[in-house]
C-alpha cells in the first residue's frame, strides 16, 4: 500500500490486516512506555487546511508512539494564508524530505492530487465532502470489537445492519463508511431527509430511507452524523428543532433500539441537535471507544505505509 486516499482502495484482506494490527497497537496505550521503535527516523507531516481536534491529534499521537517525528502545519498561520497554492505548499513540505503527508483539505480530491505531485506517502485525513478513510477504519474497528463481545473471532459484518443517520450529502464520513462497510458485508441503511441525500445515491451499495423510526428497530449499529452547519447555506431543513424531532437520536428513540445495538458518532457532537445527551452518554454509546480506536487504527495505517522498505 503506497497511499491511503479512499476506503475503496482497501479489500477485505487489507482491512482485516489493518484492524488486527490496530488491536496489537491498542495494547501500547496500557504500557509503561507508550512507544514502539518501528518508525524511528521517519518524518510525518500533518498538513491540515481545515480545523480538527481528534483527527489531527490522534495522527500526531499515533506517529509519536511509533517513534516517527511528527510536524503539524495548519492552514491558518502558515503561508497558505499568504495565498500559497496547495501545489506549492505540498511541494515545499515534500522538498524537506518528509516520508508521509497526512492531508486534510476542504476541497474533495486534494490528497489525491497531492499524491500525484510528490513521492512521499499521502494519507487522506478528510477531503471536503469526499472521503475520510481512517474514520471509516476506526469505526469498523470499534464496531468489530462491539460485535465480537457476543461473537468472538467475527471477521465480516454479514447479516449486520448499520444505520447511518443525518447529513449524508456533506458527509465524507458517510461515504467512506458506506464503501468500507460494504466491503465487510454489512447492510448499510442511510437515513436522512430528502434534502440531505446526495444526487446519484442510487448507485451506492445501500438502502435509503427517510423514516428514522422505521429503520431504528432493525439496526445493530446506529451511526449519527454531525449536522455540518459550516457546509450548509441554509434551506436543508426548516428548523433545528424540527430536525431533532425527525432525525435526532432522542431519549424516546433510545427505547426503540434493538437489544444489544450500539451508538456511534464521529464527533464533534452537536448535543441536543442530532444526538441527545442521554444517547451520547448511554451505556451502549461507543463514542469514546471510537476516539481511542482512532489512535490505534492510525498507528496501524502508518506502520502499514511506512514500516517497510521504500
Amino acid at each position: 500500500m503506497r497511499h491511503l486516499l479512499s476506503a475503496a482502495d482497501l479489500d477485505q484482506t487489507q482491512i482485516t490486516e489493518i484492524l488486527d494490527l490496530a488491536e496489537e497497537m491498542s495494547l501500547v496505550q496500557g504500557r509503561p512506555v507508550k512507544k514502539l521503535p518501528a518508525l524511528r527516523g521517519r518524518t510525518v507531516v500533518n498538513l491540515f487546511f481545515e480545523d480538527s481536534t481528534r483527527t489531527r491529534s490522534s495522527f500526531e499521537i499515533a506517529g509519536k508512539w511509533l517513534s516517527a517525528d511528527v510536524i503539524n502545519i495548519s492552514g491558518k498561520g502558515s503561508s497558505v494564508s499568504k495565498g500559497e497554492s496547495l501545489r506549492d505548499t505540498v511541494l515545499t513540505v515534500a522538498a524537506m524530505g518528509v516520508d508521509a503527508l497526512v492531508i486534510r483539505h476542504h476541497a474533495s480530491g486534494a490528497p489525491w492530487q497531492a499524491s500525484r505531485w510528490i513521492d512521499a506517502h499521502v494519507l487522506n485525513a478528510g477531503d471536503g465532502t469526499h472521503e475520510h478513510p481512517t474514520q471509516a477504519l476506526l469505526d469498523a474497528f470499534t464496531i468489530r470489537r462491539h460485535l465480537r463481545s457476543s461473537t468472538p473471532d467475527l471477521m465480516r459484518f454479514d447479516g449486520k445492519t448499520v444505520a447511518i443517520v443525518g447529513d449524508i450529502t456533506h458527509s465524507r464520513v458517510a461515504r467512506s463508511n458506506v464503501l468500507l462497510l460494504a466491503t465487510l458485508g454489512a447492510q448499510v441503511i442511510l437515513v436522512a431527509p430528502p434534502t440531505l441525500l446526495p444526487a446519484g445515491i442510487d448507485s451506492w451499495p445501500v438502502l435509503v430511507c427517510t423514516d428514522f423510526d422505521e429503520v431504528l428497530p432493525q439496526a445493530d449499529i446506529v451511526m449519527m452524523l454531525r449536522v455540518q452547519r459550516e457546509r450548509m447555506s441554509g434551506g436543508y431543513f426548516p428548523t433545528p428543532r424540527e430536525y431533532t424531532i425527525s432525525y435526532g437520536l432522542t431519549r424516546p428513540r433510545l427505547e426503540m433500539m434493538k437489544p444489544g445495538a450500539a451508538i456511534c458518532h464521529p464527533g464533534p457532537m452537536n448535543r441536543g441537535l442530532e444526538i441527545s445527551a442521554d444517547a451520547a452518554d448511554a451505556a451502549n454509546s461507543l463514542i469514546l471507544e471510537q476516539v481511542a480506536a482512532g489512535v490505534s487504527v492510525r498507528m496501524s495505517v502508518l506502520y502499514e505505509l511506512l514500516g517497510g522498505a521504500e
Binding site: Y303, G307, G308, E310
Partner: peptide, 8 residues
C-alpha cells in the same frame, strides 16, 4: 525493518 516490505 527497512530492508524488506512491511512485516506482519
Amino acid at each position: 525493518l527497512r530492508r524488506q516490505p512491511t512485516r506482519a
